[in-house]
Design a protein around this nucleic acid. Sequence first.
DNA 1: TTTATTAAGATTGAATACAAAGAACAAACA
DNA 2: TGTTTGTTCTTTGTATTCAATCTTAATAAA
Lengths: 224, 224
Amino acid sequence: MTENLTLQMDDYLPLRDVVFNTLREAILKGELKPGERLMEMHLATKLGVSRTPIREAIRMLEHEGLAVTIPRKGAQVAKMTEKDLQDVLEVRDALDALAVVCACERMTDAQFVELKEAMKAFEDATRTDDVRKIVETDEAFHDVIYAAAANPKLENIINSAREQMYRYRYEYVKNPSVYAQLIAEHKTIIDGFDRRDVEFLKKIMHTHLANQINAVREVIREQK
Amino acid sequence: MTENLTLQMDDYLPLRDVVFNTLREAILKGELKPGERLMEMHLATKLGVSRTPIREAIRMLEHEGLAVTIPRKGAQVAKMTEKDLQDVLEVRDALDALAVVCACERMTDAQFVELKEAMKAFEDATRTDDVRKIVETDEAFHDVIYAAAANPKLENIINSAREQMYRYRYEYVKNPSVYAQLIAEHKTIIDGFDRRDVEFLKKIMHTHLANQINAVREVIREQK
DNA sequence: TTTATTAAGATTGAATACAAAGAACAAACA
DNA sequence: TGTTTGTTCTTTGTATTCAATCTTAATAAA
């Protein structure tokens, strides 16, 4: 009689995590701008919690590279310089290469199907005006590859690197003239996996990433 | 008369950072063992602070991969499985390769001198019984290379990967029979930089890392 | 003996309180 | 006018408090 009392205890999340996710989203979407101060009391009242979970969330953002805090002066949304971007891209380039090598070896048939579906979803999204959806489906496409690499540590690190450029990348994707190229590149990537051609894939991934650099750089220049 | 009153206001560190460093050290040195619970009150009284900075430090350890917390149950020192180690090594291998490519391009003469000095310091350290000093000088040698890569983001990520194996690596270095090999490899690395031979360096770094795998794997097996 | 049940204690989650540092602004002085 | 000093207000750092949940150990029931 009481078996359905097993309530949803598993969807409990500490407030610090809720706050963390909220702030993270806000930063990535640009609602909180680079350089903007993160004042504890302000955020606390805005989110309807006390300062304690805010502070813990800020510590987490800090380690994610999304916030910077100066002792006794408080935290602010991390700014990225052009050099920072260059550095992150350099790293991500290397990690993307590793990811395709691993994924090429380890991708299951199911994952390959998933990849083709993700490709389709992205293509569909570009036909809408929903930039958010476009960005998400693009990310999802790459997520499949990273998951196929079957290396959670790698996935984490790539995600954190990705996250650091995300804010700027958003602007890049707003420009519809790049859709055709992105779609073409995704198709080529699928082709590469079909043939399990590692060297080819490494090259493509590199190009794919490099294409973003100038656009993102542009956005960064404007910021300052 | 009063010019030397300028006191050291710059060495202030929030307690959370002090606690973070303390716990981090303790974990890396093995004083806090994998799986050991990190109880807030216990740590707080032991370190003579309140729970607040402890909690913030734990959030930081968490994001460093050194602690894992389960909501409402508390944090514990992160355990590493063999698979985790494999994964981290795979990543580090790729990043090391990137680091030597960058360092090869960008290493200054001063840094090359530094590298040779670090080599010497390590060689000296192996002649003592001070395992701590041996580990430190070995790390310092690699630090010079990473610094020469002139990519702080890369440096950060490598450090965090490095940190995750550090605990296990400690055991490896305790065995004096590996010193000779390590010294030889360091010499070869210097040689590679002298000739700016990127491909050669990539290979050497890979070997250098691979040599540690089995030893560390052994230690991990014992743990469980 | 084994399995449920439950009460007590321990531990984490979150809010609040208080102290200390920093920022902003105004009054005093050159 | 411009600089300096003092005062007040804001904000962060840390400690403390209270509530919720988990663990445990003891007790009761099978």
